[in-house]
Each structure stands twice: as C-alpha cells, then as structure tokens.
Amino acid sequence: MDIERFVDGCIKANTEDDPQAAVLEVLSKAIRNPNAMLAAVGEPTQAEIKVLHRSKALTIFSAAWTPQMNLMPHNHLMWANIGIYTGREDNILWRQTPGRIEAFGAKALFAGDSVALPVDVIHSVTNPLQRFTGGIHIYGGDFFDTTRSQWDPETLAREPSDGASIGRIFERENQRMHARDKS
C-alpha cells in the first residue's frame, strides 16, 4: 500500500461526475486488504486523527478509536466515505424529527468494509471492542473548517461542532484510556 498513490487516486477520483462514488471505489479497493493499509498507516496506539490530505474540496485522514470509545451523534454537512482497516466501528444512524433527533438504523463496519454516508447523515460511532479500531475517513470538503452540529449523548440537545471540538474529544478519550491503564 502506497499512501501517496492512494491519496492521489482519491484526489483524481474527486474530480469525476459522481465524486463520492468514485472516491469510494478507490477507498474500497485499498481497504480490501486491511493489513496492507494497517502497515501503511501504523498500528493505532491512541485516539488520534492523522491527516493524509486536506483541501477545500477533500479531507482524508486515518482515525483511531480507543477501546470502547464513543462519539456522540454528529453531522458532517458533506459526504463521507469510511473504510475500516482494523477493529470494528458501530454506527447508529439518526434523523431529524420535530424538536429532536431519533435513531432509525445501524451499520457495523469490520476490517475490510467501507461505506458511503450522504451529506445529510447524522450518526454516532462506537468502538465496541477491547482493542483499537482504525479507519480511513474521506470527506467531500474541508472537514476541519466546517462548523457542524453534534448532539449531547444524554439529552440529545444540539450543540456546535468543528474540527477543534472533535480534537478535544479525542484528547479526553486518551486521558480516559491512560487513567484506566493506571488503575
């Protein structure tokens, strides 16, 4: 697995008539061999986002989830493709209803799986395993410079979200993991 060639392939695919489908094809092909992707990006050791490419048109990163990490319901306001190269990612799909959101579906992704999420998706993410999960996340825009929404996991109250707030969640998750390891 050559990460630079993978990123270049995604950038080129993003210029096609249906960019999400074209990028998903590149991702799906790359993730079919999850061990090769794992070797290319490295074994996850903490919750983190490793940016592989960032522009106004496309963001590509490797995301690592700590054991049993949860991310509250959130939206992207852009299409997203996700491919898992180690572990498992459980997604709960949510939809807007008058006054709140409600769960309406779920999708479990295992190593080697990829999925396309539409622009209007709201989902929450869980790593149900006692080990790390790693995935490649590709967004049809600048993920880090887009103000989005997240919903409080207990009250489902809507809150603002952006790249910095997601970064703080990953920092807190690493603190939780290190505190657990010390006990």
Rank of each mutant, 00 (worst) to 15 (best):
D2G: 15
I3Y: 03
E4D: 12
E4L: 15
E4N: 15
V7T: 09
G9K: 02
I11D: 02
K12P: 01
N14C: 09
N14G: 07
T15H: 04
D17I: 06
D18N: 05
P19Y: 03
Q20W: 06
L27W: 03
S28C: 07
S28G: 11
N33M: 13
N35P: 14
M37G: 02
M37E: 04
M37Q: 02
M37N: 06
A40E: 08
G42F: 06
T45D: 14
A47S: 08
E48V: 11
E48C: 02
K50V: 08
V51T: 11
L52H: 14
S55D: 15
K56D: 14
T59K: 03
I60A: 12
I60N: 03
F61N: 02
T66K: 02
P67Q: 12
N70M: 12
N70A: 13
L71I: 14
P73T: 10
H74T: 01
N75A: 08
H76D: 13
A80R: 00
N81W: 05
G87W: 00
E89M: 07
R95G: 04
P98H: 13
G99C: 08
F104Y: 14
A106E: 04
A108E: 11
L109G: 00
L109W: 04
F110G: 01
G112W: 03
S114F: 04
S114R: 02
D120A: 13
V121Y: 09
I122A: 14
T126D: 02
Q130W: 01
F132D: 00
G134F: 04
G135M: 09
I136L: 13
H137D: 00
Y139E: 00
Y139V: 02
G140W: 07
F143D: 00
F143T: 00
T147W: 10
T147F: 09
R148V: 05
Q150P: 05
W151R: 12
W151S: 05
D152Q: 07
P153A: 10
T155M: 05
L156T: 07
L156C: 09
G163E: 10
I166F: 11
G167Q: 15
R168M: 12
I169Q: 12
E171P: 02
E171Q: 09
R172E: 15
R172W: 05
E173N: 02
N174T: 11
N174Y: 06
H178Y: 15
A179K: 13
